[in-house]
Amino acid sequence: MTVHATAWKMTSDMSPEYAYRRPLRSSRPWCLSWLPGRLLLREEALAGMELDEFLSDPDLVHDSIAHAAIADRADVLDIGWQDAVLLLTERMVARLRAAEVA
């Protein structure tokens, strides 16, 4: 489980989701692919990527330490972890449906 981060993009080795920095001068230049419409600080984007990684790892389903980390990362984004699960699931279903059509 690793988030790869540069000055402009964050990717995951667990998930196709990503974060990117807009080339505008702004106090919140970051966006998450799975959280559209939200402008974020770098730390928030990283928390969002880590949250996605925790939720993407089926080995962590019963891990209480991971549950605490999930709650922590969701809190940084000011969303409920349940909302994050729903948003990420919707994106996964959309990708699967698009693959079926292709």
Rank of each mutant, 00 (worst) to 15 (best):
T11D: 07
L39P: 00
M14E: 08
W34V: 14
A45S: 04
R25W: 13
R73A: 11
L86G: 10
P36C: 15
I70E: 01
D63M: 06
Y20N: 01
H4P: 00
P29V: 05
E44G: 07
E50H: 12
H4E: 09
D57E: 10
R42K: 09
P23A: 13
G37D: 02
R95N: 02
P16C: 14
L87G: 00
M49E: 04
I70Q: 04
L96E: 04
I65S: 11
T2F: 08
D52K: 06
P16W: 15
S26P: 03
V76K: 06
R28E: 12
E43Q: 09
M10G: 02
D78F: 09
M49Y: 06
R73F: 13
E50G: 03
V93H: 05
A68G: 07
W30R: 02
D63W: 03
L77V: 12
P23D: 14
E90Y: 11
W8T: 09
L88S: 07
E53T: 13
L96R: 03
L96T: 06
V101L: 03
P58R: 03
H67R: 12
P58D: 09
L41T: 14
D75F: 12
P36I: 14
L87N: 01
R97S: 09
L46A: 10
G80M: 06
D52W: 04
L55F: 05
W8H: 05
V3N: 05
D75K: 07
V101T: 06
E17M: 10
V3S: 03
L88N: 02
E90D: 12
S33Y: 09
L87H: 08
A47M: 04
A66M: 14
E50S: 03
L39M: 04
S56Q: 02
R42W: 07
M49P: 00
D83C: 13
Q82M: 10
R22F: 07
F54W: 15
D13R: 11
A99K: 04
A102S: 12
Y20G: 01
I70G: 02
A45R: 00
R28L: 15
L88V: 08
W8S: 08
I70M: 11
T89D: 07
D57Y: 06
I79D: 00
E100L: 15
L41G: 05
L60S: 02
L24Y: 04
D13S: 13
R21M: 13
H4G: 01
R91P: 04
